[in-house]
Computed example of a mutant assay.
Amino acid sequence: MRRKTLRFGKGFRVAFDVRRAQAAEMVIAPGDSEGGPDNRHRGADQWLFVVSGSGMATVEGRRVPLKAGTLLVIEKGERHEVRNTGRTLLKTLNFYYPPAFDADGDPIGPGRD
C-alpha cells in the first residue's frame, strides 16, 4: 500500500508509481496549456480527472470541454493538448497506464513520446 497527500502546486508533478500504473498532478494557470499538437504517449493511456477549474482538451483535433468532475481518457498514441480557459487554476489528477514519466516529469520507457 502507498499513500500520499496531493498538494497541487505549480505545473506537472509525478505523485508516485507502482509497477503498472502512475499518478501525477497537473496544475495549469489561466491562459496556459500543457502538451501541444504533437504531444502524445505512444505506450501509455492517460486518464485525466478534473479536480477544479475549467478548460478545453483537444484530442486528435476534437475539442472536449473540461470542468470539475470531468473524467477524460486519452488513449495511447492520441495527440493532445490541455488548456486552461478559466479564470482560476485548472487542477487535474492524471493516471498513466503503464507509467509514462520519471520522477522529474520526463518521458520514460513505453510511455515515451
Rank of each mutant, 00 (worst) to 15 (best):
G109L: 10
V73N: 09
K4S: 12
V73R: 14
G69P: 08
R2M: 14
M56C: 13
T58I: 08
S54P: 02
S33D: 01
A103S: 14
E60W: 05
V14F: 05
E81Y: 01
V59I: 15
P65Q: 05
V64W: 01
R63I: 02
P37T: 00
R42Q: 07
H41S: 05
P107K: 02
G53Q: 12
A21P: 08
H80G: 02
G109K: 12
A44E: 05
L6C: 12
F16P: 05
G105I: 00
H80T: 04
R3S: 07
E81I: 09
L90C: 00
K91L: 01
R42N: 12
P99L: 10
D17C: 10
Q22K: 10
V50K: 00
A57V: 13
G53W: 10
S33G: 04
R83K: 14
E75Q: 14
M1Y: 11
E60F: 04
M56P: 01
F16D: 12
G86Q: 10
S54V: 12
A57F: 09
G9Y: 06
A23E: 04
T85E: 07
D102Q: 09
Q46S: 06
Y96P: 05
G61P: 10
R112D: 04
D106T: 04
F49S: 11
I74F: 06
Y97D: 12
M1W: 06
L72M: 06
E34H: 09
R7F: 00
M1K: 07
R2Y: 15
L66P: 03
Q46M: 03
L93R: 04
A29H: 03
R87N: 10
V82K: 01
R79A: 11
G9K: 13
S54D: 13
D45L: 06
G77L: 05
G86S: 10
L48W: 02
D106H: 15
R13F: 01
E81Q: 14
T85D: 02
G111N: 04
L90T: 08
I108M: 12
V64Q: 10
F95V: 13
E78Q: 15
R83C: 08
K4T: 09
T85W: 06
A21N: 08
I108W: 06
M1A: 14
R63S: 14
L71Q: 05
H41A: 04
R62P: 01
L89Y: 07
E78N: 10
G31Y: 06
G77M: 09
R79S: 13
R62M: 08
G105S: 03
V82I: 15
L90H: 07
N94W: 01
G53R: 03
G36A: 13
R63P: 01
T58H: 03
F12Q: 00
F12T: 00
L90R: 02
M1G: 15
A103P: 00
R20V: 13
T5P: 00
G53P: 05
G11K: 01
T88L: 09
